[in-house]
Design a binder for these strands. Sequence first.
DNA 1: ACCGGTTGGTTGACGCTTCAACCCCATCGA
DNA 2: TCGATGGGGTTGAAGCGTCAACCAACCGGT
Lengths: 165, 165
Amino acid sequence: MTDDPRWLSPRELQAWMRLEAVAELLPAALDQQLQRDADLSHYEYLVLAKLSEAPDRTLRMSGLAASTNATLPRLSHVAARLEARGYLTRVRSADDRRATLATLTEDGWRKVVATAPSHVTEVRRLVVDRLTAEQVDQLDAIALAVLGALDPDNRLEAQNPVAGA
Amino acid sequence: MTDDPRWLSPRELQAWMRLEAVAELLPAALDQQLQRDADLSHYEYLVLAKLSEAPDRTLRMSGLAASTNATLPRLSHVAARLEARGYLTRVRSADDRRATLATLTEDGWRKVVATAPSHVTEVRRLVVDRLTAEQVDQLDAIALAVLGALDPDNRLEAQNPVAGA
DNA sequence: ACCGGTTGGTTGACGCTTCAACCCCATCGA
DNA sequence: TCGATGGGGTTGAAGCGTCAACCAACCGGT
């Protein structure tokens, strides 16, 4: 723990500090826009968005948690609030009665539809439109490489087969 | 707000979702390692690290807040805890008596020295060592571009003139 | 010298995430 | 059939960040 590691080179250090800054500032910026325009946190929006893309607009809590990179307790709390606001409903699965199925309500669907455009616009403004097409591809490759360490079980892809095996 | 934006292309969407995942998972991973090995949050470590690099190991609260990408209230709370743990001290500036100067104590210095190696190792494991040299440069350019939108006043660079004007 | 406006910083209340404990149900072995 | 094990999910308490209110001190004008 106290032995000398390989220190970062100046280029590595600079890239790292900038990534650190982005990782700190980006979530806050997304939260702010969504809070202001839709009274939703970024994570709440993510939950609604994932449900909106699912078959029957329904997902198991555990699957929803995995696909949104969250712990189950966190999702449970958020789902409780969203349910209280009428955006989703939770029912026990008939199939496996330990499981809980979350379903987007009609109101929830309308909320997503109403919110998505401004969110996409913000994502473009903050990230996508500031990068060249090559940089978008580079970013994809870099993020994938980093996710290899951050998400060893690939829980994200497992739910969302982008280029399926 | 409800008008159709330019939607993301498949490539853009994938890169975005992966960046989103990294921004969500990376801070948590760093927190975990530091918490386990040093009983420090990532942000607390950042504060101590910045102080350790400053002249006289001393910085104004406002400057420290800017260079760590945090709000002043947040820093104030964190500094109070770090002071209680004996890692830094706060005194009113003689020069401008509204200002507060935070100084790293000897204990704080030792804490940083003891913690830095394992932190760097973790940064390498999660990010730097998973990228090629080209990708590190690409990441630097991409992060810089994004920071242009996230940090319009360039508060970060202002404190830390990398290639100073 | 004084008074309004502004900057620097702290404090307290609130909201969200985390962690641990807990309950319910499915599964497996006897 | 019964008991043990473990997975799925929720709940409550604790900790940290945010926001708004507040105090203190500098600065400009008069």
